[in-house]
Structure formats: C-alpha cells, structure tokens
Design a protein around this nucleic acid. Structure first.
Lengths: 150, 150
DNA sequence: TATTGTTATACTCTATAACTATA
DNA sequence: TATAGTTATAGAGTATAACAATA
C-alpha cells in the first residue's frame, strides 16, 4: 500500500506496460528515425525494405514481398513502379510462372542499399543505445518468435 | 561454410534480423489483431489507447496524450471529439491553465475500457503464445527502455 | 476455379501551417 | 514570445473490389 495507490482501473491496465502499445511506440520511434536517416538517399523505411528484399539471395515475387512486409499486393505495385523508374530494381519474369515477377535489385540498387544500410545502422546504434549488444540480441530473438511464428 | 552461403549483400543485412523491421512487423501484426479483437465494441487500438489514458489516475492534457501516443496534437482533436460524442470521455477544463483540457473517462467509458482490455488480453495471449510469461516480461522491459529512454 | 499482378476507388491516417485564447 | 487547442488542407498510406492473364 503506497501513498499513491493506483485506482482499480489502473491495476494491470497501465498502457506503458502493454506489450502492444510498447511495440507500436517503439516501431513509430524507429520508423521516424529510420526515415530521417535515409531521406538524403531518397529512400524511406518502406522502400528500403523492398530494396533489401530485392538484394536478398532469396528471389521473391511481388506477392511474397507483400506478405513479408504486411502490405496489400496492390500497394506493392506502386512501390515497385517508382523504384523501377528510379532504376533501383527490376521485374524479372519468372519462367516457371508467367504470371509472376521476381523482384531483383540492379547494380545501382545494390550500391544504394549498402549505403542506406550503413546510415541506418548508425542511427540504430544511437537510437537503441539504451540496450546493450546482448540485450539487442535477446530482443531480436523474442521479436522473431512473434513476427514469424512456427 | 554451408552449402547455401549467403551473398555478400546478405551478410548481416537480412531484413529478418533487422530490429527496426521486426518492430514494424510485430507492431503491424499486433495492431491488426487488436483492432479485430475490439471492433465489436466500437473501438480500435488507437481509440482504446486514448481511453486507457483517460482512465489512468494520472490526469493528462491533450498535448500529453499526443506525445505519449506519438500523434500530432491536431489528430488528437478529432479522436477526442468522436469519443466525447460517444460519451466515453470528457474534456475537463484545467483550472490552473485555462488553455488546457484534462481528458477524463466517463463511467460508461471506464466500463467499456475494462471490457475492451479483457478482450485484448485474450487475443494477446493467443497472439503472443509464442512467448512464455517470462519471455514476455523480458520483452516488456527491453521495449520500455527503447520507448521511454532516460 | 484459383492465383498473380494490376487498376480504380474510397477511406483513413499523417504532416503542415495558421488561427484563437491564454500564459 | 511561447504554448494548448483548434481548423483546414494536402499528401501519404490503407482497404476493397474488380479485371486480364495464367495456373
């Protein structure tokens, strides 16, 4: 019993203890910092993510990119359009399924990705400086369990 | 050296290992599940968060709510308007600063909050079932360090 | 029949600037 | 001068349905 006993509604209901709220706030902070970090490169966190997948050795269709980034496939069309216009990625027809396009990064796209990744890592380090390396590893493992459940 | 050695770009650059991406994806999943869980109550995660703060024993101004939820103050106006029309919260003029409103929940608002919190906890339990209780506690602590740095 | 990419559309959310009344 | 709340508005993001080509 403290002097400032929380009300009945407060007990266990504090927003600051709510995992969903914390995820939302951390994600918003991270997204804002990330956008600022790569704005000079003409990228946002969203387009950077597409670029990262296009650089990955796993070749992915637009559909797979949409699922991975939790976007509607129709949204991915516009994203890919603009990045293709900018010469960062290309639509590679899938010979095994003529409906599908595999999204691959161009050489300039890969160079930009590497620069953007470097810029993001620097701000992440300053933004996540509240966590030790070990804590960051623990956080990564826990988030991956939620993000990609078996 | 595995048979499927990652490309040079892949090394250390996999999106699935990126804390910012993981935060975004977890937040998106959590937000979608949360919205579905309380849709029948006429709430979304956003309005639920406002309601939770209005129920808190700490009396907050619109400005403080905006900062806490990482929203622009102008967005909070519309949110509060609709929730006030629904009779869930009230604008309580701050006698010490006649510019400011303190946002407080009405009795129906508190009842709805309790029901919504119950609904959310149930889906959280199913959504976060990938984590043990102990892991959830660790995750909460780590996220709080990022969300509210000293 | 079902799926991939696409288009179109409407809706919500977000960001910005400006205004008022207070401080 | 600066701040709390408000208004207006343009832009970005989101959700939905429908379509052609292909499976």
């Amino acid at each position: 019993m403290t002097m400032d006993a929380p009300s009945a509604v407060d007990e266990g209901g504090r927003l600051a203890d709510d995992l969903s709220f914390l995820l939302a706030r951390c994600s918003a902070l991270s997204n804002a910092a990330g956008n600022a970090a790569i704005r000079a490169l003409g990228l946002k966190v969203r387009s950077y993510s597409v670029l990262a997948l296009a650089c990955d050795s796993v070749r992915r269709s637009q559909r797979e990119i949409a699922e991975f980034l939790r976007l509607d496939p129709s949204q991915v069309v516009a994203l890919i359009d603009s990045m293709q216009s900018a010469g960062l990625i290309a639509r590679d027809p899938d010979p095994r399924d003529r409906r599908a396009n595999v999204i691959v990064a161009t050489a300039p796209g890969r160079e930009l990705f590497i620069r953007a990744r470097r810029a993001l890592l620097q701000t992440q380090d300053s933004h996540l400086r509240a966590l030790s390396r070990q804590e960051q590893t623990v956080l990564r493992t826990l988030l991956q369990k939620i993000a990609f459940p078996e």
